[in-house]
Amino acid sequence: MKIAISTSGTTLDAPIDPRFGRAVRFLVYDLEQNNFTLVDNEQNLNATQGAGIQAAKTVVDCGAQAIISGHCGPKAFQVLSAAGIAIYHSDGSTVAEALEQYNNGQLQAATDANVEGHWV
């Protein structure tokens, strides 16, 4: 199974990007192979609006079945849930920490968006 983590860096030591929709990129970690790929979220940084919706689509397209991020707005939440993707919020500071929390079963799947939409 693959899990996408929002980050501003390119390694496992990189910090988690607390934003989902406007995250710089996603680190997509393959739990079976223990390796990862990077997926840029660049075009969304300049999106007029609806960055969360597009980011959710990006995550779906890269084959991830779960995401870990800081915040997730209501629209992104709706799209991710419709695609059957589990959403986890982590307060960990790095990607590796978040993955460890996930593997130890310390993260609970979110049942609701944890921030209000930003509208634009």
Binding site: V115, E116, G117, H118, W119, V120
Partner: peptide, 10 residues
């Protein structure tokens, strides 16, 4: 309107 919503949410 739009600018106020953008300025205050969250």
């Amino acid at each position: 309107g739009c600018p106020v919503i953008a300025a205050t949410t969250g």
